[in-house]
């Protein structure tokens, strides 16, 4: 069996769904961030698969996109961990259930 576009997309959907589930279900901030990272990776996989299989006027646009996604995700993770540190210093926990000072 040859690996086709559909296979990559299926893996992408699975990864994205697992990431989304983690992001919504995890209580620990770091766990949520890992879920979001997984979603970014699913997007990268999908983009790479498309740029490999879809005929395109800009053949490397998908690759360039992925490089930017990886870079920006790293920048975002740096800020996220810094903020998690600040919250931990203030509250002594990064459990999202206990970070509940602001609520209606």
């Amino acid at each position: 069996m040859e690996v086709q576009l559909g296979h990559y997309l299926t893996v992408g959907v699975l990864l994205f769904s697992i990431g989304l589930y983690l992001a919504l279900a995890k209580r620990n901030v770091v766990g949520i961030l890992m879920g979001i990272e997984l979603m970014f990776n699913a997007v990268s996989l999908t983009l790479i698969a498309f740029s490999r299989f879809v005929e395109s006027p800009q053949p490397i646009a998908g690759h360039v996109f992925v490089v930017f996604v990886i870079t920006v995700a790293a920048a975002e993770a740096a800020v996220a961990l810094a903020l998690a540190m600040v919250v931990y210093r203030n509250r002594g926990t990064i459990d999202i259930d206990q970070i509940n000072l602001l609520r209606w």
């Binding site: 901030v29 949520i32 961030l33 996220a80 600040v86 970070i99 602001l102």
Partner: peptide, 8 residues
């Protein structure tokens, strides 16, 4: 707390 929620 607001910043972390906004970021996530």
């Amino acid at each position: 707390e607001a910043g972390l929620k906004y970021l996530l």
